[in-house]
Amino acid sequence: MSSLTAPLGALGRASLGGLGFVGRVTLFALAALSHVLRPPFYAREFGQALVNIGWLSLPVVGLTAIFTGGALALQIYAGGARFNAEAVVPQIVAVGMVRELGPVLVGLMIAARVTSSIAAEIATMKVTEQIDALVTLSTDPLKYLVAPRVLAALLVVPVLVAVGDLIGIFGGYALATGSLGFNAAAYLNNTINFLEATDIISSLVKGCAFGGLAALMGCYFGMHSGRGAQGVGRATKYAVEAAAVLILAANFLLTGVFFSL
């Protein structure tokens, strides 16, 4: 009998574990967001987070976007040629970058670069008792470490997404006008005329959501790190995995929401 019920038991334990994780992360996110709104505010930590998450991510975001925009233009041109639709390259590059690839790729780059760095930094602070030291110095770690990073990510990742969108479109433009014989003025005209306000709004909303998720996962797994170097490594790995999966899941949900509007 027990061999028959064992898989059910394992499934139940896994389900409970999963639900417990979702509950803990949700409570953590609510607590973090409540600290974003309540004083005291740590302007210095917020400023540092803005620089680390925003300014220092620009090179990787720019490189990712420019290569993706160029490759996208080439794919659309090659694919479109099969049914004489090469002329749609500017429109598809623009809508593809702004609605989908810009936010998702920037989100994943932020997960790789920022989530890992936040998780490793906070986890190291935890294993070296710096978090305990903060508490004994009457400073709430959620307020001092988590709130500034989450707020900075919520504000600056949409800006990164906008920059990524522009650079991606420029990548497509450079390739199309340089190698595929497109007229520069006509390319820009087609791009600008085709994009709608909702495309840009959906891109920025996605950026905001992905930035929040990336920072929250880094902070959550950092604050709940195990002991020693292995604990820091695990926290970093889980944080990046969780952030990447949640960003893709949120992208699916948000795309559905924007399509239904």
Binding site: T128, E129, Q130, D132, A133, T136, L137, S138
Partner: peptide, 21 residues
């Protein structure tokens, strides 16, 4: 009251626990 309670304490941690940044 937590802040008032902690304000009465000082603590030297085993590894000093200084803030790296």
């Amino acid at each position: 009251e937590r802040d008032a309670f902690l304000a009465r304490f000082g603590m030297l941690f085993q590894g000093a626990a200084l803030f790296d940044s």
